[in-house]
């Protein structure tokens, strides 16, 4: 057992302070455990989100010493014994209270994505080869913790939530576009409604993904390439014009 120091944000969207707490920490504890102890013993009304406590649900996202993390998977021994650990709610979304942000914007984005549309002719026992779905499965590991949305410059610093759907939903789009059974075409939406051009590939989203999904390289860049192929490749443009109804115009 050792006494450790914390600074936790207490307040709401309009006002708040970093409050100091000290708490006894046991071997093997994660940051969420320490916050739970503070909550039970010193701050019964402190708001925080958590669920599975095993890195599988993506509820407990916060910023710990400035880094966006799942607090259930952040061990206390990642920090020095004398270090004060500061915890704030996700900063790219409005603060509800204390360590909880209002992430409902993300749920709204998902509704704007054209849903999965399988080939009706293949109905029954669908055949898909493992090697053809490996990439889609990588994207489907996403926990919806929104850490990537939280660090995305377009959403966080430029505050352009009306122009870009964000990395989480870019990989959702990628998982649909690369699904072997899907027949819908989302490329026009990827370009226009969802704003693929806004991303300037700084890979901050990939860095914070707790599932280590290669968001930028495997998801966003291939989507950008599909947009380029469709809209900016002169030969392909002609091809679409002549043979396909899914013309960009």
């Amino acid at each position: 057992m050792a006494l450790r120091n914390f600074k936790l944000f207490r307040g709401n969207q309009n006002e708040g302070t970093m409050e100091h707490y000290s708490v006894e920490v046991d071997k093997g504890m994660v940051v969420l455990d320490a916050i739970h102890h503070i909550q039970a013993e010193q701050a019964g009304d402190m708001a925080l989100r958590w669920n599975c406590k095993a890195g599988k649900c993506g509820s407990c996202s916060v910023e710990i010493n400035g880094k966006p993390k799942l607090s259930c998977m952040t061990r206390m021994n990642e920090y020095g014994p004398e270090e004060t650990i500061s915890v704030r709610p996700l900063q790219s979304f409005p603060v509800m209270k204390d360590l909880v942000s209002d992430v409902s914007w993300n749920y709204e984005q998902n509704k704007n994505i054209t849903p999965f549309k399988p080939d009706p002719l293949k109905k029954g026992n669908y055949i898909m080869m493992q090697e053809d779905i490996d990439r889609v499965q990588e994207f489907r590991k996403c926990l919806e913790c929104y850490l990537c949305q939280n660090v995305c410059h377009v959403l966080r610093d430029q505050r352009q939530k009306d122009k870009f759907i964000g990395p989480r939903f870019m990989i959702r789009l990628a998982s649909l576009e690369m699904h072997p059974l899907d027949t819908a075409d989302r490329i026009p939406d990827v370009k226009d409604t969802h704003g693929s051009g806004m991303c300037n590939i700084t890979r901050c989203c990939t860095d914070v993904c707790p599932e280590h999904i290669q968001i930028t390289d495997n998801g966003i860049i291939p989507l950008k390439e599909r947009v380029v192929d469709r809209y900016y490749d002169p030969l392909l443009r002609l091809f679409y014009k002549l043979f396909r109804r899914k013309s960009p115009n």
């Binding site: 599975c52 095993a54 649900c57 992430v103």
Partner: peptide, 11 residues
């Protein structure tokens, strides 16, 4: 009670 998609089924 939680956000959508966080229920114990994920475990």
């Amino acid at each position: 009670k939680s956000l959508l998609g966080k229920a114990h089924t994920v475990m």
